[in-house]
């Protein structure tokens, strides 16, 4: 049975082997985490070539510093923490087009479509566009929660911030998205909930 505890123990063993320069263990860890790291990075900075480089930068850092890993956090938390740190460094000085949702020119266009019936896929495409306009701080909390499935204490460890900060950022991210969702006509029924 591959429980979360089994996986955690297995990953701890891999890290111990990597600390002894075991490339096979690095391959196992790479196969499990590189796709997740890549997904996190690419969604934060939208630069495929740079994202590929950053994945290898993260893995190289794991290769070099595995001996220093003390196991005080889960391996996955440690790896995503490295990825997040390097991603923030990469985007430092880089100012993405963070137009406020309320100021978004597309906002008016789509608002005029409220009466139109949209498919779920259309709604998701529009929501992704809205997510891209969130700040880095809000976006990373959303990604770590809904794509990577971390708890708020785990996200606090990855971001190296208090748990309440994580909750607050999620709250604000939702508040920025909510008006857009309502204008798009996303209701409990659309989302598969109970009306």
């Amino acid at each position: 049975m591959d429980t979360a505890n089994d996986r955690a123990a297995e990953e701890q063993q891999w890290i111990a082997r990597i600390a002894e320069q075991d490339r096979t263990a690095l391959k196992l860890l790479y196969d499990r985490y590189a796709p997740r790291v890549f997904r996190f990075v690419i969604r934060m900075m939208k630069d495929e070539a740079r994202a590929q480089e950053l994945v290898n930068d993260v893995m190289m850092e794991i290769w070099k510093s595995a001996a220093k890993f003390e196991g005080r956090s889960a391996v996955s938390t440690w790896i995503l923490g490295i990825a997040r740190f390097r991603t923030l460094n990469a985007v430092r000085g880089y100012k993405p087009d963070l137009v406020g949702l309320d100021e978004s020119p597309e906002q008016e266009d789509h608002s005029s479509d409220v009466s139109q019936v949209k498919s779920m896929e259309q709604l998701r495409v529009l929501l992704r566009q809205a997510l891209d306009r969130l700040s880095v701080e809000h976006r990373e909390v959303v990604e770590l929660t809904f794509f990577h499935g971390y708890s708020y204490p785990e996200i606090a460890a990855i971001l190296d911030c208090p748990e309440n900060t994580v909750k607050t950022r999620m709250f604000h991210a939702r508040n920025k998205l909510r008006p857009w969702l309502e204008r798009q006509g996303v209701s409990a029924t659309d989302a598969g909930g109970v009306p």
Binding site: R124, L127, R174, A188
Partner: peptide
């Protein structure tokens, strides 16, 4: 209603669409 919005948000974020870049298989 808010839980439904969150479920929709979660489903959207969790989905990897066909147009999203993929990790280079030669990366390792």
């Amino acid at each position: 209603q808010r839980l439904a919005e969150i479920d929709f948000l979660q489903g959207t974020v969790a989905e990897v669409t066909a147009d999203e870049p993929q990790l280079d298989p030669g990366g390792f």
